[in-house]
Computed example of a mutant assay.
Amino acid sequence: MSFPNVYTHRKVAESNAKSCEICFKPSTSVLITPENKDFFYVCPSHLKDTGFCTPKIDQAAVEARRKKELEEEMERVKKEYEERQKKKKEKEKAKEKKDDKGKEKDKDSKSDDDKKEDKKEDKKESESTEEVKSPPVEEEPRVFELKSAFYQQRLSKKRQTEIAKRNRERLRDPSFFPSVPKSLP
C-alpha cells in the first residue's frame, strides 16, 4: 500500500486541532496526500524546516500569477492615465472659457496657479496609489515532499495500521481458529 510522496498543506478549524506528529503541540495544519490515503498534523514551523520537507513549487502557476499581476497593474495604470487625460481636457476647456471672459494678464497668472494645482494633484494621486500598492504577500507553498526518512516512517506506520486491521478482522472470523475435534482419539 504505497502512496506518492506529495503532501498538500491544509488548515483545519481551531476546534479540530490535534497534536503535531513531531512535537505533540496542538496544530491546525494538516499535510494530506492527493487521494487522502495518508494525513497527519504538523506545526507550520516544521514546514519551514528543510530537514523535514521541501516545498514543491509549480513554475507554471508562479508564471501565471506573475502574468496576471502584470496585466492588472497595466490596466490600473491605463485607467489612471485616462483619468488624468480627462481631467486635463476638462481644465483646458474651463481655461478656454475663462480666457474668453478674462484678460491676457489674468491668463498668465491663472495658468501658473493651475500648473501648481496640477502638480499638487499629481503628487496626491501618486501618494494615494503608493498607499494602495502594497508589496504582494508571499503565499506559503502548499505542496511539500517529505524527506526520505520521514516518508519511510509514514509508509511503515501505514503498513503497521493495515496489518493490525487485518489481524483484528481475522480474529473476529470464527473459522480462523481450529475447531474442536469431533472423533475420538
Rank of each mutant, 00 (worst) to 15 (best):
E83P: 02
D173N: 15
Y81T: 13
T33A: 06
K115N: 06
L47C: 07
P174F: 05
F177P: 00
C43F: 03
P44M: 07
S128H: 08
P181V: 03
K103D: 14
I32Q: 04
K157A: 15
S109F: 09
S15P: 02
R172C: 08
E69H: 05
D38M: 08
K165E: 15
L171R: 13
E82S: 11
E125G: 06
K107S: 10
C43I: 04
Q153T: 04
E140H: 05
K86W: 04
E14D: 11
E138Q: 10
D114H: 06
K105C: 01
P174Q: 02
P4L: 10
K86A: 13
R142Y: 06
F3M: 06
K18E: 07
Y81G: 07
E35A: 10
P34T: 01
S126I: 11
L70A: 08
L70T: 06
F40C: 03
D99T: 11
T50N: 15
E72Y: 03
K25P: 02
Q160M: 12
M1V: 07
R159W: 10
D99F: 12
S156Y: 10
R66A: 14
E125I: 05
P181G: 07
K68V: 01
E63N: 15
A60N: 05
A164L: 11
L70W: 07
D112T: 09
A64I: 09
K115Y: 06
F39V: 00
K37P: 02
F150G: 00
D100L: 08
F176H: 09
I57K: 02
E162K: 12
D118C: 04
D122R: 03
